[in-house]
Design a protein around this nucleic acid. Sequence first.
DNA 1: CAGTGGTCTAGACCACGGG
DNA 2: CCGTGGTCTAGACCACTGG
Lengths: 182, 182
Amino acid sequence: MEAPVYIQIHNQIKKEIEAGKWQIGDRIPSERDLAVTFNVSRMTLRQAIQTLVDEGILERRIGAGTFVANQKVQERVSGVTSFTDIMIAQGKRPSSKTISYHVAKPSLSESEKLKLKDGDQVLRMERIRFADDVPISFEVATVPYDLVKDFSKSEVTKSFYHTLEKKKAATSSAARSKPSVR
Amino acid sequence: MEAPVYIQIHNQIKKEIEAGKWQIGDRIPSERDLAVTFNVSRMTLRQAIQTLVDEGILERRIGAGTFVANQKVQERVSGVTSFTDIMIAQGKRPSSKTISYHVAKPSLSESEKLKLKDGDQVLRMERIRFADDVPISFEVATVPYDLVKDFSKSEVTKSFYHTLEKKKAATSSAARSKPSVR
DNA sequence: CAGTGGTCTAGACCACGGG
DNA sequence: CCGTGGTCTAGACCACTGG
């Protein structure tokens, strides 16, 4: 009944950050050093780091190190905001249905909160979230229309991995040959 | 300038699913078989599968296999709904601020959409989302109060990993000893 | 019991960054 | 240059599921 090693390490590092061992912006020891400290392989240690990165507690910088992130008012801190995450953690299947989607003139309240200029328009969306087909949330979201236009242009779906859209990664060969140099 | 192998495999498998090679609910070949097919190690293949699981395209069932998920009206499909994901992909730091949080009587519209019964109450939350301190969304979310009560009880923050809250994983020892059996 | 995903090892080479 | 994170290998044992 013991938790996987990488989760134990996750908890340990999280505790030490909360205890103030490292401050926001500090670099924590390298993966290789931490692997020695915790007496595990580097791959296992990376799993622990990954869970902390996923939580927004740490952030990695290639070639530079791993740093304590500035979490500010991060999602999961305020309780109910991480609703979808909780659903996933409980093994539910989150989905959503958009039931309305239109451009409109912002209300005074919306204009203040989104710091809009006079004449700016907004896109207003209504959607229902489900967990395994059970409705768990009804949401009305208002976003500055300018932002939406930008995103439409850049073809959102392609920006998922790094900036991979520039590479058109070769994906045609099903059976790949051994990587060359390594 | 070539994409990592696991992303190439991710793209390939995604293509084959979109092409209808496997239908929703189908079990795809095992990780070991796919590793042979793509001529990579199982760990590398698991990285590819993981990205597909993260996208909600596949789902794993311990001891049973990996299956094509029923995505339905999944988040990222409908464009603007995956706003936060897009921000993350672009290197922005997403945050949010809750500006209102109270229990209320549902409107008729809310009652219908959340399939509430007479007398059911809701929790209504207003929040602003930011990307690197720039407000990008104003949201009003309404959830059935019964659900919120449940989540309050079970101490949300502890349900992050599996059902780990029951285990109180030993995290006190910084320097761990070698795992026993392996 | 046979197969599957979950975890873990002890190495390796690469591209990137400036403590 | 030298350390860092990113990727990858070729194995291994475990817990779980039921084709």
